[in-house]
Design a protein around this nucleic acid. Sequence first.
DNA 1: CTTCTTTTTGTGAAAATTCACAAACAGACT
DNA 2: AGTCTGTTTGTGAATTTTCACAAAAAGAAG
Lengths: 413, 413
Amino acid sequence: MSVEPNYFQQYQHADIDELADAIGELLQNPITVEDADHKLIAYSSHGDSTDQARWSTIMGRRVPEKVLTRLWKDGVFQELLTQDDPVHIPAKDEVGLGKRVAIAIRRGSDVLGYIWAQEVNRPITREDDEILRQAARVAVPRLMQRQGKRKAEEQRRKEFLWELLLGNHKSESAIRQKADSLQMQLPTSYLICVIEAAGARLDQYLYPLLMRDKLLWVVDGSQIILLIGLNEDGKKDVREVLIRKVEQFLADSLGKLEAHVTEGRQVIAGYGLGYSTYLEIVKSYREALHALKIKKLFPKENEGIYGYHELGIYRYLLQLKQWEEEQGYKNERLEKLRQYDRDNQTALMETLETFLDAAGKVNVTAQRLHIHINTLSYRLRRIEEIMRVDLENMNQRAALYLELKMAKLDQEQ
Amino acid sequence: MSVEPNYFQQYQHADIDELADAIGELLQNPITVEDADHKLIAYSSHGDSTDQARWSTIMGRRVPEKVLTRLWKDGVFQELLTQDDPVHIPAKDEVGLGKRVAIAIRRGSDVLGYIWAQEVNRPITREDDEILRQAARVAVPRLMQRQGKRKAEEQRRKEFLWELLLGNHKSESAIRQKADSLQMQLPTSYLICVIEAAGARLDQYLYPLLMRDKLLWVVDGSQIILLIGLNEDGKKDVREVLIRKVEQFLADSLGKLEAHVTEGRQVIAGYGLGYSTYLEIVKSYREALHALKIKKLFPKENEGIYGYHELGIYRYLLQLKQWEEEQGYKNERLEKLRQYDRDNQTALMETLETFLDAAGKVNVTAQRLHIHINTLSYRLRRIEEIMRVDLENMNQRAALYLELKMAKLDQEQ
DNA sequence: CTTCTTTTTGTGAAAATTCACAAACAGACT
DNA sequence: AGTCTGTTTGTGAATTTTCACAAAAAGAAG
């Protein structure tokens, strides 16, 4: 293996624009340098032939939204954010983007910006990768200064989010003012989503997602807390559709995440209701945490469910349980059935739970239990006798359902 | 109408035994005088021919339990307690009771005791009634002295019960001691039952019941609070059977009471769980009151239900409602359905409630609503669309059921 | 081993549920 | 008046549930 030359030795202390020109000379192609927020930082002056995307970027001092969206969609940024090597990108004519190569400028796990090299004068091959790698390294100190400010601001924003989550602010207008002073534009509507992973570094894992949607987020131990905006354009219907869209999106990506990361460790997520005033962020946060807690306690029962409002009776369960304990209420019916099961080595409790879970449908229940329908019918009659309940009565059935799930709380945990 | 003679003019200040003899002389039959607790107070010395019942009463200084039970069963005491006239009682040979006439000795609404006149030497006719009426009046002062003591004791017992109900005692042994000092034998197990009637004088109405079972009771405004004993003879099974018996009895008599007294005013009743230690009497009382409260709020839903343990989900409802309010949770689903009903003049809410109440049975629901089954099926599909719920899912169904009943709380009240 | 109780499975007929499809009706809007 | 939408009712067939009755299997108790 040959020793690679040090392409940018004389540019260690050069201006960032000079660096762009130098890369452009080496690759014989137009170069653009952006920060992590895709704001233009420098560009090579040499190139005369360029594409629509680069032209718009330079004129607007930022990469057009349309282009960014497309690149996120195609997974280009996901690649850039997770690897050190340059990424070769085919042309995307619909958004006026010619063929090019890009590399992330990174320091540790932080991405400070990107270098883009367009392919117009000559193709950029794998041999050129080292040039870009070195260029990315050399660009780091230059971007650090900018990043420093951004980081500090980011930090202050995160602190502000914590204040909001903990309910430290007492007036909506004060919140708006502080948000303005931090140059944050709070979404008109929002919800809080909390994701928890036992050992994984979630923020790293979620980086593409966080960057793409410019989400406001903070980390708390093994949890990451996201503020997700629901910007309503106008009518109420729109807002509802939007919420549902976000819910859909969350359910999708959280589902994927769960499936993806489950290499030994567990990922759980939950989100609260959507609100419009930021005094209520405390509620959304509390709701998200509650959903998370319930999902930990009843993983199977709440598979595919993330929203607090979707929890159904589980939303009440902990509260009810606590209340029962305070009152010192002892539920004899369930205990009697459990005792019967122990004495006779039967499975009436399981039968009852399956039956209730199946909303009283006998064939479903029998199938799930792998028993004959008449066996089920016999068992149900037996259960009614032993517990003295009427399973046809909705009040009793619902109460039993609640009691059963409550009982599982101290049984399994 | 002829003026009745004053039969007992010279006995106004005579001894109670002399009075018994005097009545015996007038009626030419054996006489027995008892207090309200059926303890023997006096008897005529004249008679030589007597029956088994009277003999046992005199020898035991109290009317045998067997005889009392029979007389309660046959409604004799109910008559005696509620009317001023003598009651003519046919012979009840099975308990060794010959034909006789009895009258209550009463002062105001209080029954102080009874005069019994056996019919052996000559029949006692309607003409003799006035003799017994006057005798009962003359006997009053004599019984008052005894009654005075009894009343004071009764008063102290009632005060003690109040102390128990309010949880003023901190140790079980202290409770037992005080009970002993008041010569009360507390049942080994018990439960608290509360009956409420708007305007009626319940204690008067329940007098026969209270007297018969020697229940401990206190009055609180329009409520009467009963301590009902569950004396278990031995095994656990027995206790359970006993509790069920008492429940049956309560349900029966309370049902009758409700049906009977509903001349404009409402009678409601509820009872708590059965306990064995008297520190827990507070719980049973609170439970009884809670059952009462729920029955007021949901009279139809809890018709024929009196026990706290039978309330099902209603047991949780108030607590949950309060929690929801504290959390500031707004239920949008139900509101949406209500709005739809308003906008389109439909009855989806009623349909949903009926469906849930019928435990998801379509034919029952359709019948109750007087609609075609397909209409119901259409409406249910509509409800699922509008509310975005899956009525087949037990969790959602139960949650909806709870929410619906909770919503009724602030809707109707 | 027999007897008794409890549990499981089977059969068959009546009743209820589900589903697809269609006709009729009412109200709102053009 | 015609159209559209939402609602109600009807029909019929496949499927499911309910109920009564009975036979078999398993385990405990004598």
